[in-house]
Design a protein around this nucleic acid. Structure first.
Lengths: 190, 190
DNA sequence: AGGAACATGTAAATAGTTACATGATTGC
DNA sequence: GCAATCATGTAACTATTTACATGTTCCT
């Protein structure tokens, strides 16, 4: 049950609505915490009931009203406790690697196709992380930013995300090539 | 519900008991599919009921009897269907990155300690993956192995795991250094 | 008129975690 | 005798996914 901490960590960057939070989780945070919009709406309600965030209704013209959330003092205290606790090993579940693990001549064609799809997505995500990094830095170069910024956490996690996707891309290309090299003949025969 | 496919993919490598399967998931497969022993025992029972694996009791002397499982024809067919389907985006949930995302001067000391713990684990895992790669290769060099082996899938996923942990280690070191550089003074004051 | 982005939920079903339970053998 | 490894489960609880539900505004 650390979704709550992931939400609190993101809200540290400023008040957000459930919808905005879902977008952040879909991009900047997706490399270390996956959560669906439904989960986030539910979690925000629970966090507000627990007093860890404050909700505030924002009346909007030209679009539906929204409820934005801020971390409370209790929420910050909860993050303090969380930071002090041992980090659990990361949980990863990746369909694509399961497919690759099971690859054989008869499945090679399908698996290579899946790998190539993932390669495209990885390249796009790496670019997205890079864009986020540029936005976080603003006019500063990386060194200056990291030495002076109020919050360097989001930048550090984003660096990890960018590298992860770059490595994904590299692995996808190499693996697809190797599978074709190993079973190219059988793949063509089918 | 792709735990079943992860189990089938691993059992492709030869018959295993629940206990042995749990060990494989704890090491070689942990970089792309996390599952607890309890989950695996439950899943094997379900897979056998569904006819995707065959269980066989092995009587042992000097240690408790065990039940080992093999993939059936239906199980292979299920893997074929799975390989052909779109790969879902990977689900990742990593406590440590949440802690780093939320790092600030007051939490810096605790977060750096967690990062350093993870660095040690990452180094150990990278070494473990490397060992597994050597075992898979046997006497062959990597190129020859990948060009000739019956099953290259486990080798490819293991390569990804090794690189992932190496990158983790690198990121951990760099991030700990950067947090210390940014807030070293405040960290000493506490 | 239809699709995309904005905005938020509930309910049912599935999956996953944690605690509890048991028992043998080997090596120190 | 005690810890570690081998070996397998059940049950209660929590978390997550998926399907269903609704309604606005902007743009084409």
């Amino acid at each position: 049950m650390a979704l709550r901490h992931a939400v609190l960590a993101v809200l540290l960057g400023g008040e957000l609505s459930g919808y905005q939070l879902a977008k952040v989780f879909d991009t900047g945070v997706s490399n270390f915490w996956f959560a669906s919009p439904q989960q986030l709406y539910t979690e925000l309600t629970k966090l507000e009931q627990a007093g860890l965030v404050d909700g505030r209704l924002v009346i909007q013209v030209n679009r539906p009203n929204k409820r934005v959330y801020t971390v409370t003092e209790d929420g910050v205290a909860e993050l303090d406790r969380f930071a002090a606790a041992d980090a659990k090993p990361a949980v990863i579940r990746d369909d694509l690697l399961v497919k690759v693990h099971a690859v054989d001549p008869s499945r090679a064609r399908a698996v290579v196709a899946r790998i190539e799809e993932r390669a495209v997505q990885a390249a796009a995500k790496a670019e997205l992380f890079d864009e986020t990094l540029r936005n976080l830095r603003g006019d500063l170069d990386e060194e200056t930013f990291l030495a002076t910024a109020e919050r360097i956490g989001p930048y550090l996690t984003c660096l990890r995300g960018k590298r992860f996707e770059e490595e994904n891309l590299d692995w996808c290309r190499r693996s697809a090539d190797l599978i074709r090299a190993r079973w190219g003949a059988e793949m063509r025969e089918e």
